[in-house]
Computed example of a mutant assay.
Amino acid sequence: MKLCFVTVGATASFNLLIQAILEQSFLRELRAHGYTNLLIQYGKDGKSLFDEFLQQYPPGSEGHHGLVIDGFDFNSDGLDHEMRLAKAWPSEGRLGGLIISHAGSGSIMDALRLGVPLMVVPNPTLKDNHQQELADILQEQGYLISSHYQEIASSLDRAERLRAQMAQWPPVSRAQEVPPPSLEQVMSDELGFLD
């Protein structure tokens, strides 16, 4: 099993990401990269999109591209269990997968702790798009892949390259005159922690 877990978070709707994940081009590309399972946390407003997809492409149909596709709206216990399904676990027959997340700082921190490749997709419909700033900084430092929702299929190659780079963790930043802020500094700033 090689699983791609997608989360849109618990507070804001992100139907643009759900639609992009369910596009045939993305599913085809996911399968081409060896994935067997797609698990989607579609949030409070994404159920209708997920149900429409299943009506149009029932399980086992060509529209699933050989993938087992499941979804749910919310997990009050958090997403730790679902995220861990993307972690390599050879004794259970699991290959290392991928987490695709909205760019919420909590989701990013949870995914980074697991050491699983992370693709972050900032929600462009948010009024103050702090998600894009966070995603850009963390991508620049080599911690994750930042992608626009319309480019997730083509970003899968970058996610697989990130997997190889993660073997050399922590990431090596490009030489710069002023070193970029550390992950700890970025997360502290994002979460509002003061020194």
Rank of each mutant, 00 (worst) to 15 (best):
L118F: 09
N15R: 12
G60N: 06
I108F: 04
E133N: 01
P179M: 00
G9E: 11
F5M: 11
F14H: 02
Q141C: 12
Q165L: 13
P90G: 15
P181N: 05
V186Y: 00
N37R: 08
C4I: 15
Y35N: 05
G60L: 04
S155I: 01
D77K: 10
I40C: 09
D128M: 13
D73C: 06
A32M: 12
L112S: 14
Q41V: 06
L191M: 04
L22F: 06
L118Q: 04
Q132I: 05
P58S: 04
I152Y: 07
E29T: 12
K127M: 06
Y35W: 08
S101K: 13
A164M: 12
L79W: 03
V178Y: 12
N37T: 09
F5E: 07
G34M: 03
E184N: 06
S146E: 02
H148D: 12
S155D: 03
G43M: 02
L49M: 10
G104K: 01
Q132V: 08
Y143E: 07
P170I: 10
L17W: 08
G63D: 15
Q41L: 10
A12S: 15
D45N: 13
V172S: 12
L79E: 01
M187A: 11
L126F: 01
L118V: 01
A103G: 03
Q55R: 11
S91W: 01
S101I: 07
G192V: 02
I99P: 01
S101P: 08
A86C: 07
M1T: 12
A167C: 09
L49E: 13
E82G: 13
M1E: 09
I137D: 11
S188D: 03
D195A: 09
A103P: 15
L22A: 04
S61Q: 10
N75M: 14
F53T: 03
L79Q: 03
G93I: 05
F193R: 09
V120H: 01
V121A: 03
R28V: 02
A175L: 02
L3K: 14
V186F: 01
A135T: 12
I108W: 04
S105T: 15
A103F: 09
H81G: 14
K44R: 15
H33G: 03
H102P: 11
K47Y: 09
F72N: 13
N123M: 15
Q176L: 15
G71R: 06
L134P: 10
P181W: 00
I99K: 05
Q141L: 10
W89F: 07
H64Q: 10
E177Q: 08
A164C: 04
C4S: 09
A32W: 11
M166H: 06
V186R: 00
F5K: 02
D77A: 02
E190I: 04
A135E: 08
V116M: 01
V68F: 07
T7L: 13
L22Y: 00
K2S: 04
F193V: 00
Q19R: 15
T11L: 11
H130A: 11
Q150E: 13
P179S: 06
E52I: 02
I152H: 01
S107Y: 08
L17N: 07
D77E: 08
K2Q: 13
I137R: 10
F53M: 05
M83D: 03
S182Q: 10
E52G: 08
P171L: 02
L39W: 13
A164D: 11
E23Q: 05
A111Q: 05
S105K: 06
